[in-house]
Design a protein around this nucleic acid. Structure first.
Length: 703
DNA sequence: AAACTAAAGCTTTTT
DNA sequence: GCTTTAGTTT
């Protein structure tokens, strides 16, 4: 690609951003302003025009999805593969550095990576041993995580006994946790970053090497960086300071995970001579939507000034609908979606319902079923978090790294081998005495006297099986997994219905090697979401960040939900709620509908709800209010039988079917209704628009 | 080891 | 309210 064509499709600010290749660059990228386009074109420009080696550019994102999109778009611009380049998430790229260098700080390079549940289990077993109430493990895990995110390791905590709200008991757990991780040859998510920082700080030669290697650095979603990530980027940017950060302080919504919006707001102070570029042209939303968004975010203090604009025109009206309760709200949304769909302009995948808490999805889901609209809820448990998958992954982890006692404990009695808690505790005590891992201790027990025969027999069976599997750990991974299913008896033991997903795991492993497969299993939250079917998307406001939809419904715009009642006391958290609302609004391209209920059931009690306080920041006249009262038939419809969505679409002329009419040609069925002997369908024909037809008379042909 | 009962949760969650 | 999980029973 030529130099010129790389910048030809860009607006002037985007061009400036691409062309500024030396020194720190801060790109304030408003919602929908084409930031990925800028990053990818900048990457291509650096390599094509500035002759920077692609391997010398470090491009870090937060999510695998963002990394994947970045790679794909770079590939399509440069027409070259991005394989082996330094494009990826903070965690995966850090892991890559550590695999090479971690022996410098006394770890082994074949470490395994613990996900949240693995480290949670480790914390729990420590609490148990320390006789601390086990149910506290969640809070303790998250405290450990946030300390690590702030680069406060156990040593730092002990060295500053008077800070961080020091608690001796907690400190003991923390120290022990970190020691156990090391014994298990394991790193948790936060270690991946924290230890990379430690590596760089304690080994200047290593740091220098990577500073030299990465002549240019780009960071996406910079407003989401936590202290350790910020330190890492600052270290790597080093003297060359060819660091380009892209983000939007208005969209900072992850403070609760350690993200500090100050990193982007103070970037210019930390990096002298930073050039700042604002991307303010929005290519996503109508002016009406941007006006609402602006009136909300304008009330945010300390923000970096920005004003989004569009040449799209005013667009559709924006609505705010109030209903008597959350069920009516859900029904209103589902009904509106149905009407919208029947008008034929939008398909289901163009529509999203966004909400503050997952709990809200329940009523919305119910209403969608009642009205018979297809939907998909995002953000449930992912493939790799399912119990059966985690079990098998644990087998693999043990085979790759027998020191991993957390995974070992997970599989030792699964399927049941009569090695229950008493036996495990017995082995654990022995392991502590011998200062060895569980697996080594088991091996010791079966070959030495002083233990009962029944204990030895049970453990011997398990160890022999494991040894056999370890011997085979280098064979084709799919075959290895099938061998685990067979030798462990797992496949026979597991419930009928679960066999299918175990088969999926085998095919997911096809052609991969054990180590990288395990890294991916920990570092990836799920398999690729197959988003091909036409359905409405339901998700939280948080998960919607980075996405866009032609039509967006924001449900539960009430005080207590947006802003959430946990966030109302603290001004900083309240501001984050405002930004969250802003993120929700700016997901919409053409149509935006806000809704709220007067009464809402939250847990046990029914609460009187007030409209969100943020709504008062919107000038009157910017949106239209609707007061929805339940109609007389509401009671009847709520008691009507719920028809599963998949049954609704069984007829050959179900919604979504493509049909051919002798006169009007090909069209798409949008709805069916009427009795079985006189079924009527609504068909959208591109030539003539929506038509109501009776199947009896219209000579429709399914194609 | 399955099956039951009691109890504790409960904001958001990129890795 | 409802779901998940820990603990107890058989």
């Amino acid at each position: 690609m030529t130099k010129k064509s790389l910048i030809s499709g860009l607006n002037s600010q985007q061009k400036d951003a691409v062309l500024h290749t030396n020194g720190p660059l801060l790109i304030l990228a408003g919602a929908g302003s084409g930031k990925t386009k800028v990053i990818t074109h900048r990457f291509a420009y650096l390599t094509a025009a500035e002759k920077i080696a692609p391997t010398s550019i470090l491009a870090m994102t937060f999510t695998n999805k963002a990394a994947k999109e970045m790679k794909e778009r770079i590939e399509s611009i440069t027409k070259t593969s991005t394989k082996g380049l330094w494009i990826g998430t903070f965690h995966s790229l850090s892991a890559r550095i550590l695999r090479k260098e971690i022996d410098n700080i006394g770890y082994s390079s074949d470490f395994c990576i613990y996900d949240e549940s693995d480290s949670g289990n480790l914390v729990r077993s420590i609490l148990k041993e320390f006789k601390i109430h086990e149910a506290l493990y969640r809070g303790i895990s998250s405290k450990i995580s946030s300390l690590k995110a702030s680069l406060v390791g156990p040593d730092e905590l002990l060295a500053n006994e008077d800070s961080y709200g020091f608690d001796e008991k907690f400190a003991r757990v923390y120290v022990r946790y970190q020691n156990e991780l090391k014994k298990n040859n394991a790193l948790d998510f936060d270690d991946l970053i924290m230890l990379t920082v430690k590596l760089c700080e304690e080994h200047p030669a290593v740091l220098k090497k990577y500073q030299k290697e990465f002549s240019h650095i780009m960071i996406d979603e910079f407003q989401d960086t936590n202290a350790s990530q910020y330190r890492l980027t600052a270290l790597l940017a080093g003297k060359q300071k060819n660091i380009c950060v892209v983000g939007d302080d208005d969209q900072s919504i992850y403070k609760f995970r350690g993200a500090e919006v100050g990193h982007i707001r103070n970037f210019k102070k930390d990096f002298k001579k930073t050039k700042t570029i604002r991307l303010e042209q929005n290519y996503r939303s109508t002016q009406n939507i941007l006006d609402i968004a602006d009136s909300i975010i304008a009330g945010s203090p300390d923000r970096m000034p920005k004003k989004l604009w569009t040449d799209k025109g005013k667009g559709e009206k924006i609505y705010h609908c109030t209903t008597i309760n959350e069920k009516e709200e859900a029904r209103y949304i589902a009904q509106s979606i149905k009407e919208l769909y029947l008008k034929g302009k939008y398909s289901y995948k163009d529509i999203a319902i966004l909400y503050r808490v997952n709990q809200q999805s329940r009523v919305l889901e119910e209403a969608m079923r009642e009205v018979g609209q297809p939907y998909k809820i995002f953000g449930g448990i992912s493939f790799y978090q399912r119990k059966e998958i985690k079990d098998i992954i644990s087998y693999l982890k043990v085979l790759a790294n027998p020191d991993d006692s957390v995974s070992l404990k997970r599989i030792v009695n699964c399927p049941p081998r009569l090695i229950g808690t008493t036996t495990v505790t017995r082995v654990e005590n022995e392991a502590r005495k011998r200062e060895e891992g569980l697996y080594k201790t088991m091996k010791h027990i079966i070959t030495n006297s002083g233990y009962t025969n029944s204990l030895k027999d049970k453990l011997r069976d398990f160890v022999l099986m494991t040894e056999e599997l370890i011997e085979n750990r280098d064979i084709n991974l799919s075959e290895l997994i099938e061998m685990i299913y067979e030798k462990s008896g797992y496949l026979e033991w597991v419930e009928e219905g679960k066999v299918e997903i175990l088969k999926e795991l085998v095919s997911a492993a096809e052609g991969k090697d054990l180590r990288s497969f395990l890294d991916n299993a920990s570092l990836f939250s799920g398999l690729d979401e197959s988003g091909s079917e036409d359905s409405v998307s339901l998700m939280t406001l948080h998960s919607a960040k980075g996405l866009e939809f032609p039509v967006v419904f924001l449900a539960g715009i009430e005080d207590g939900l947006v802003p959430h009642f946990h966030a109302i006391k603290d001004p900083d958290e309240l501001e984050e709620e405002r930004r969250l609302f802003y993120v929700g609004i700016t997901r919409a391209q053409d149509m935006l509908v806000l809704s709220g209920a007067k009464k809402r059931r939250l847990y046990t009690s029914v609460q009187e709800q007030q409209p969100s306080r943020f709504l008062t920041d919107i000038p009157s006249g910017c949106y239209h209010c609707i007061e929805k009262r339940p109609r007389g038939d509401a009671a009847i419809s709520s008691s009507s039988v719920k028809i599963p969505v998949n049954l609704l679409n069984r007829s050959p002329f179900a919604a979504g079917a493509r049909v051919k009419h002798p006169k009007w040609g090909v069209g798409v069925v949008r709805d069916t209704y009427g009795e079985t002997d006189d079924v009527k369908v609504m068909v959208n024909f591109p030539s003539v628009g929506m038509k109501r037809l009776s199947l009896k008379f219209a000579n429709l042909e399914k194609i």
